[in-house]
Design a protein around this nucleic acid. Structure first.
Lengths: 156, 156
DNA sequence: CCAAGATATTTGCAAAAGCATTTAATCCTG
DNA sequence: CAGGATTAAATGCTTTTGCAAATATCTTGG
């Protein structure tokens, strides 16, 4: 009987609490809502914030790559970048080798802005993992990597 | 040195790939996008789908509870329910004990509709966890439960 | 080397989401 | 037990999304 190895049969049978995607949506719903609260005041949106976060780590990336890393639709991202550029937080620059493509660079002001928001993200993260042993957190992270590899459709 | 127990110092130092909320957003972004593709054709939206999914497990729930379980803003949910009711997939009924509140019930047609969509959810789930041992999946699930308990603000 | 097809980004537009307000009912406190 | 505070849900309105189409550039087979 090599049954049920992976896919649960019916949602009713396994229950919401044993269906990981459900739990992950619940968790990320809270996480994102709490960040949104924090940012709303300062005229920052989720796509903008995510863009800055990614750029603070990987600068000079192509827009299409940023869309993937930041988990934002490209058209939405395009407009978010308009806003960030208008505020001087990022700078767009046509790629040298391919003039269709655009690279995005974070400015000093952009970094400073992100640093101001980072504590809220760190706090949200800490709350998520409070009272969870380091070893368990490591194992969790390792599984997340496997899952991402399973679902992503890109090279990164 | 009881440092760094939980909150990483700066995102740049730890990297996106070691920041669980980032990975979870990436993963759920894909999961939800893939479901959305599947549903768009059949005039079904994410809030509608999530409502049916929750109701298929917990029927006769209050709207405000459904909003939490389904991870949907209440005003958005209200309109999603309008749509579902119009299609005869759910039924709203004023609560007996508190006539401000409304309970939502899934109809047979609603169940049937959910069953039609369920395979796509199961498929997405299977893809996520392919090649991940059962024991690891169990551990992952256990950690998700802890995290949800850490972040939720409600009794459920 | 040119046309047809592919790729990167932006933009138009309609649908969706979210905040704040409204309506209605219940709770609670003095 | 009246009246202000609270809670549930719906609605008005504005902003944000996201799809699809447009624009611009690049690539490649003939």
């Amino acid at each position: 009987m090599k049954d049920q190895a992976s896919a649960p049969r019916r949602l009713g049978e396994i229950g919401l609490n044993n269906f990981p995607p459900y739990l992950m949506n619940r968790i990320m719903g809270r996480y994102n809502a709490s960040l949104r609260e924090d940012m709303a005041h300062q005229g920052m949106s989720t796509p903008k914030m995510r863009s800055l976060a990614v750029l603070s780590v990987i600068d000079g990336i192509l827009i299409r790559e940023l869309a993937i890393y930041a988990v934002v639709e490209q058209s939405t991202l395009s407009r978010a970048l308009d806003g960030l550029a208008a505020d001087g937080l990022i700078r767009r620059e046509t790629d040298r080798e391919d003039s269709r493509a655009t690279r995005v660079f974070i400015t000093e002001k952009g970094r400073a802005t992100f640093e101001r928001h980072w504590p809220a993200m760190a706090r949200a993260h800490d709350q998520m993992f409070q009272d969870i042993p380091q070893a368990e957190q490591q194992a969790f992270l390792a599984t997340l990597h496997k899952i991402l590899r399973n679902v992503r459709r890109n090279e990164f």
